[in-house]
């Protein structure tokens, strides 16, 4: 009887050990979802991710002279940022495979230097993979002195492999205040 009880106890200990391992692994899995999600969005272009990387215009981009795609530029300002921030042009007709340049205009309305970071997003999501930026103000932090205004360029091309059904692409930026860099800039 005692032996049987000990038997049950050690089986229990094994079961519990395994179950605790599952629980701990699942906690880790919750965190593993973060890089998995990022990777998934990057590969599929879901969530409008356009990548932080500088794209290169490859040689084999055949420009289709008969096709044109409308690009809509959009801007949003986080409420913590005392800036104006607007696209110079709201719309642009582009031919896939060809390089274009436009710019956004930002002005610091406050009396202190402020550093901001812009985050891009492309809609529809399936166009995100084909929208390439070779130069963008969103690649780095932007510092504006009090009252300073600045034209911030974006150079981009739409890949000629863009699916036919897409005829409108929206490039949207949200610009946020970078608190850490701002306090560094104002202490200088």
């Amino acid at each position: 009887m005692i032996a049987a009880e000990d038997q049950v106890k050690s089986t229990n200990a094994q079961t519990i050990g395994k179950l605790v391992v599952i629980a701990v692994l699942m906690f880790g899995f919750g965190y593993a979802l973060v890089p998995l999600y990022d990777k998934f969005c990057e590969i599929t272009g879901l969530g409008g991710r356009t990548g932080d990387q500088v794209a290169e215009l490859s040689e084999n981009q055949a420009v289709d002279p008969n096709r044109s795609v409308k690009v809509h530029f959009d801007s949003n300002i986080n409420s913590q940022l005392p800036w104006d921030f607007e696209p110079a042009e709201t719309f642009m007709e582009v031919k896939p495979g060809q390089m274009y340049e436009t710019h956004y205009v930002a002005r610091n309305r406050s009396s202190v230097p402020v550093v901001a970071q812009a985050v891009p997003s492309v809609a529809p999501g399936q166009a995100a993979l084909y929208f390439n930026k070779t130069e963008c103000f969103c690649f780095e932090e932007q510092l504006l002195m009090p009252g300073e205004a600045k034209e911030m360029p974006v150079r981009f091309f739409v890949d000629s492999k863009l699916p036919d059904k897409v005829d409108l692409i929206t490039l949207s930026y949200i610009i946020y205040r970078n608190d850490e860099a701002t306090s560094l800039a104002s202490s200088k």
Binding site: M26, F29, G30
Partner: peptide, 27 residues
Amino acid sequence: AVMPVLAGAVTMLLTDRFFGTSFFDAA
């Protein structure tokens, strides 16, 4: 299987709110 995932999610909220991480902060 799933209670630890909730624990992870709310821990991320906690660190986003109080410890300066940005799991869910687009900025």
